[in-house]
Design a binder for these strands. Structure first.
Lengths: 208, 208, 208, 208
DNA sequence: GATGAATGAGCTTTCATTCAT
DNA sequence: AATGAATGAAAGCTCATTCAT
């Protein structure tokens, strides 16, 4: 009876922020299901019940993390892109910026990567996240459309397909970094990718 | 009371095979956690207890599916690769073969794609799958090493990095197909990817 | 941080009264368990913690409501009863008064109705409420004893039994009104009940 | 690991039946909310998880109990009623039969009594129980309609109102028995009620 | 007089697994 | 080869209550 309620002398600075950060990390690393309230609470130093003071449900917490992260990634890409630069340069800088973000905040990129799978696995996540998602794709599509209209890519490739290619490669990079946590190997791969995407990877193309 | 034991008139032909197929599909589509014994049993038309006649645990079942699937993918790639062909041709045929497999057996490719994440999320899966894995990577590495030694790629790119690039792109393709189930868009992307990997995507490269 | 403490411009006029009224309504309609502090606080426009300024516990709040309500019902019955009237008239007026109260304050009657069940379900409620309860029964018993001593009822019926009958019928009326919220049907039932209790319901009795 | 699964040598005869009986008792005595899976399981001698082998949810279990109980009560009333008997006799026998049932199976009557409140408190219960309920009311209404058409009751009382009266009195009896568990007092009340309902309670009616 | 943050206990439900038949 | 019955563990979530501000 007397031991119930809030314990005396408990500080709890910025619990909400710490919760969001830890949730991001865990959702990214372990997935939605394996991220249990218990582990989360323990990491942050509170009880599971306290989580519900900040988020009405696990799903809502996921959405909050998603919104945060999407913002960060969008800003990162937008800062890397310049209206005056050509496609090759924009891509190069985007890859660099995302690679840097991956190093600084691995959880951010890994989280973004995992969203589509989680959305597919959990209908409720899908329903909550779908209306918010798509921002990143739209930014990339803009770049691709400009590249196509400027005649910077082969006529065989549509803007949509070009954007799909970018998505595949960029998300692949993030995924790669997540799986093999080998900074040096990832860096080398990033460079190779930049060469590939800017068209200087293969001698064949020039020799033929 | 009298209904216990094995029911009469139950053939049980290849229940094991049906179990493996359904498990593959579900592991690929829903993930390891969301693939529950209950759903699995229902899909196959048996009870959860019966599963344990074929596999001693969920993990072992996962490993069995993994072995199956790895075999299929390896054979597919090996058939696409020829010792006499150059890198560009080998890659082109490999992409085609995997794209075809993705269409024929979406679960196969999707499963392969998910293995690394699952292994990361579930230490027990990792421990069981690790010693078996790496076959696909080794095959691709072979092709890449030959390409490098023949001088078919830029000197800035190592064989390892080339293989990483291939892995990223190929797995990215599989993932893309899984997320957007748009056959036409995937086909266009496959073609664009082939152009990219064989170095003919960008006009820039030719103009320089 | 700065938002803690008592918010400015909060009058807090009779928050306690509003709390009591809402608690009465909710206890009556939803029961003790389903009446959560959270819902209560929301309905009144405060936080759950604020409730504890007025009542040291949920049980005490229940007791407070009980005392209020018992008072109201007792006064209602006492006003309906007259020493000079005969049993039949007293009953008739009591039924009318309670029926009117049911219409004016449905929660009052419904609450009274539910007390015995709640007391049975929750030992703590029982312990707190028991010493206070019984007032209504005593008033009715008085009326019944006078009726018996005056020879107004069949010799086969004791005063205690007569009071039990009254209790059953009166509480049954309240319960009926609570379940079917059909004012017209309830009114008709009240009239029938008055006929029954005053002995004019059945032709059989007169024909024989 | 090795301690999981079904324990060796566990008999479990008629667990489902025992579960239903205990659930009926507990739902009736403690209510839906206070009837926890844990207590239920302990009473029956199993674990909470085992409950879900028999009922997919608590609500479904409640519905199963309800169906059982309704059947019993309906049969009891139907057996007491005879087409050839007059209203007074039918009612007298019905009251006797239900009183006997109340003694033999207190939980049955108490459960029936509580259904309407529970349905009101829990929308899910309401949704599940509503389509099944009403059987008892229909049986009583039949009796009442016959009584009205035969001219056995005062013209001021409609068949519907007569049935409402019966319901109030009968359910009131059950409730009374539940609250005061005094067999002798209940028996006396039953007799008084029979006098009341058959019109012989009050001298007033004959003397005037 | 009222708040926001936090708690321990408890609830319903699900899961992989086990065992006798 | 397959079943029905049962388990321990754990998950997400709710609740009455407490404390510092």
């Amino acid at each position: 009876m007397s031991k119930l309620g809030r314990p005396i002398n408990c500080v709890g600075v910025d619990t909400c922020q710490r919760l969001l950060i830890e949730a991001r990390r865990s959702f990214a690393a372990d997935g939605f299901d394996a991220t249990t309230n218990k582990k989360l609470a323990q990491s942050v130093g509170i009880t599971t019940a306290a989580i519900y003071h900040y988020f009405p449900s696990k799903i809502e917490m996921y959405v909050a993390v998603f919104t945060d992260v999407q913002d960060l990634v969008c800003k990162t890409i937008e800062n890397a892109i310049s209206k005056d630069a050509d496609f090759s340069e924009n891509i190069s800088k985007t890859v660099d910026a995302l690679a840097a973000l991956t190093v600084r905040e691995p959880a951010v990129v890994a989280f973004v990567m995992s969203v589509s799978s989680e959305a597919h696995r959990h209908p409720e996540v899908k329903k909550a996240v779908l209306p918010l998602s798509g921002r990143i794709g739209r930014i990339l599509l803009d770049v691709c459309e400009k590249a196509v209209s400027r005649g910077e890519v082969s006529e065989q490739i549509s803007a949509q397909s070009l954007e799909d290619m970018l998505t595949v490669v960029l998300s692949g990079l993030g995924r790669f970094n997540m799986v093999y946590k080998d900074a040096r190997r990832t860096k080398e791969l990033v460079n190779s990718m930049k060469l590939l995407l800017t068209g200087a990877a293969f001698r064949v193309s020039t020799s033929v």
